[in-house]
């Protein structure tokens, strides 16, 4: 009896917790990177319409990506670099 009970108890979190939250978390990167399939997108969007937690996580993930793509400054290529490369190629060949 007891062992059966603990068995069931252990099983519970994985399934019960769900409602798809776990799957949605796994899809977060795919979604923000535009790599999710149509089916995955549909599942994801449907879920976050109803789940505040996952909705917020999605917002945060988008924000994080935006911080890199929108705020990380690009370094300026030294003006002479292209010339140096061309010159070196002519030298070595």
């Amino acid at each position: 009896m007891e062992s059966k009970f603990t068995e069931m108890y252990q099983k519970e979190p994985a399934e019960e917790n769900g409602n798809g939250c776990e799957q949605v978390i796994n899809l977060l990167d795919l979604m923000v990177d535009g790599e999710a399939s149509a089916e995955e997108q549909h599942f994801f969007n449907k879920h976050i319409e109803e789940c505040v937690n996952c909705f917020e996580n999605h917002q945060k993930q988008k924000l994080l990506k935006g911080l890199i793509s929108g705020h990380l400054k690009r370094v300026i290529v030294p003006e002479s670099l292209a010339q140096t490369i061309k010159a070196k190629i002519q030298e070595t060949i």
Binding site: R74, V75, V77, P78, L81, A82, I85, K88, I89, T92
Partner: peptide, 28 residues
Amino acid sequence: VLDPLYNFAYRLTLDEDDANDLVQETYL
């Protein structure tokens, strides 16, 4: 591709001279 390549090199090495060398070597 020089611009993105140099930026990538810089983000890897975090040093402008090293980035410069790395990009030159890559093109060679």
